[in-house]
Design a protein around this nucleic acid. Structure first.
Length: 471
RNA sequence: GGUCCCAUCGUCUAGUGGUUAGGACGCUGGCCUCUCACGCCGGAAACCGGGGUUCAAGCCCCCGUGGGACUACCA
């Protein structure tokens, strides 16, 4: 494989017909990592030649998702639709050199021929009706590429190795539609060539297009870039990942409380590996990423492992960044998050026991609810006469407690338990329900410290009052 | 149907002719413990099948089988 010394140029070229999905994000990530690894230039190009399905909103969404993942681009975004004049000119060139021809077969004719061919067990490829008719263009005509009828075309793939195709299997594909717009297989070639793309890294759903594209490169006199086709991402049923398999939009993961590092880390390991290492920083990825280490087989998307990684990043994130990423989840619930110290403490209580920021936000709602709702089962078990004495004792002694710290409180509660002839766990559980409304929460001493003496006493009083009222 | 790709625990993967086939998620037993987690220590769990090549095959070749992609005036 000839590796020229020229600077690497890659591109990510999504079509703006929806959100950035998991598969696209991984393709973008692989391109980005490869480019950063080799000090190249990463280009973003929006393939919006489908005038009907493309929307500006989708473009916006894709850009936002890229930014969230930290995948910055060096050039672009370029918009393919703005380049139609260039595409048309290249089409003219092919017609002049005899490498393309006008075709007036109607979509209906083509469709019925295709169906018939399929029904009779023949190849459903274009039958070449107009190939040698020497037609001139008209308002109904399309332009087809005149492909070689014999020989083979080989794709040298950086991931899959050499793949060869018999040219007779390849279709004379349409490169310009009747409306004058180029089709995908033509526009990519022209754009990639003119943008000086050296490495085309994309999903392997494109392998079958590649020989045709190579022929177009050659007919146009361009250098053929290197290709790297990455395997698809599959759902649990081994079918190509789609909405049926749950969330596939990158931004949906943000809303569900995932950290971008977790998604990046998960995605990069889907198809790529570096020995036994599972956790990678961006710096490590840039240093270690290589296409040689990308596997050839498709990978099943496993939400459980993503969750594990997310949990890992929630635990290990720098505090300030965690707060920044997390706060919106409380803000959108209308909680007052202006007390930075309180917030920071609450988050440090919660972060070791959440798999997502969303989960964390829900688990920590009690910090803001003065009249915390009691879980019925929890209350039935612990907000009872049996525990009232313990709770009252805590409320009575607390004002005089000098060491209102994690250690001080633990010592206090242990001593109290002994004094009252019970175990810490019973006092802790009753307190937990009084303070948080639930039987599950961060450590009770941590909760007390975070809440502060006043609020703790208030909540205990409210709980004991309720027990009395009920009793 | 045709063309092309792929094939190690349930899943993501390491492995590049000689390994007790390793790691991770998940599952699971235990420890820790104020609940839930975290953490720590253990366990079960894989080379798709059949032929070759070779002293020796998860690794190389062939054939099956299975899965996937493409087969548009979508990208």
């Amino acid at each position: 494989m000839k590796m020229t010394n020229k600077k690497i140029r890659t591109r990510f070229a999504p079509s703006p017909t929806g959100f950035l999905h998991i598969g696209g994000a991984r393709t973008a990530l692989f391109n980005w990592l490869y480019t950063r690894r080799h000090g190249g230039t990463f280009i973003l190009r929006i393939e919006d030649t489908d005038q009907v399905r493309s929307t500006e909103e989708s473009t916006r969404a894709i850009l936002d998702a890229m930014a969230w993942l930290g995948l910055n681009w060096d050039e672009g975004p370029y918009f393919q639709a703005e380049r139609v004049n260039i595409h048309r000119e290249e089409v003219r060139k092919l017609i002049e050199t005899g490498n393309a021809y006008y075709c007036t077969c109607t979509p209906e004719e083509l469709d019925s021929k295709r169906k018939r061919a399929l029904a009779e067990g023949r190849k459903p490829k274009y039958d070449g009706t107009c190939r040698d008719r020497g037609l001139a263009g008209c308002s109904e005509s399309v332009v087809r590429f005149r492909g070689p009828e014999v020989g083979t075309t080989v794709v040298s793939d950086l991931i899959k190795g050499n793949i060869s195709f018999n040219n007779e299997e390849l279709d004379d594909l349409i490169i310009e539609r009747a409306d004058g717009y180029p089709t995908y297989n033509f526009a990519v070639v022209v754009d990639d060539a003119q943008m000086g793309i050296t490495h085309v890294i994309r999903g392997d759903d494109h392998v079958n297009n590649t020989p045709k594209q190579i022929q177009i490169y050659e007919a146009l006199g361009y250098d053929v870039p290197l290709f790297g086709h990455v395997p698809m991402i599959l759902g649990a049923d081994k079918a190509r990942l789609s909405k049926r398999h749950g969330a596939t939009s990158v931004m949906a993961y943000r809303e569900m409380g995932y950290l971008p590092e977790a998604l990046v880390n998960y995605l990069v390991r889907l198809g790529w590996s570096h020995g036994d290492q599972e956790i990678f920083t961006m710096e490590e990825l840039i240093r270690e990423f290589s296409l040689e280490a990308v596997g050839k087989s498709p990978a099943v998307f496993n939400p459980e492992k993503l969750l594990w990684l997310n949990q890992h990043y929630i635990k290990s994130y720098p505090e300030e960044r965690l707060i920044e990423a997390f706060l919106p989840f409380w803000e959108q619930r209308g909680f007052d998050v202006s007390d930075r110290r309180f917030i920071a403490k609450a988050i440090s209580d919660l972060r070791t026991r959440a798999k997502t920021l969303l989960e964390m936000a829900e688990a920590g709602m009690f910090y803001f609810q003065e009249e915390v709702p009691y879980d019925p089962e929890a209350a039935a078990k612990f907000l009872t006469e049996e525990y009232r004495g313990h709770l009252e004792a805590v409320a009575e002694r607390l004002p005089g407690l000098a060491e209102f710290t994690k250690d001080g409180l633990e010592a206090f509660l242990r001593a109290l338990a002994e004094e009252r002839g019970t175990k810490l766990k019973w006092i802790a559980q009753a307190l937990r329900v009084a303070l948080t409304g639930k039987t599950v929460s961060p450590g009770i001493d941590e909760v007390m410290v975070t809440l502060g003496k006043e609020r703790v006493i208030g909540r205990i009083r409210r709980a004991t009052a309720q027990i009395r009222a009920a009793g």
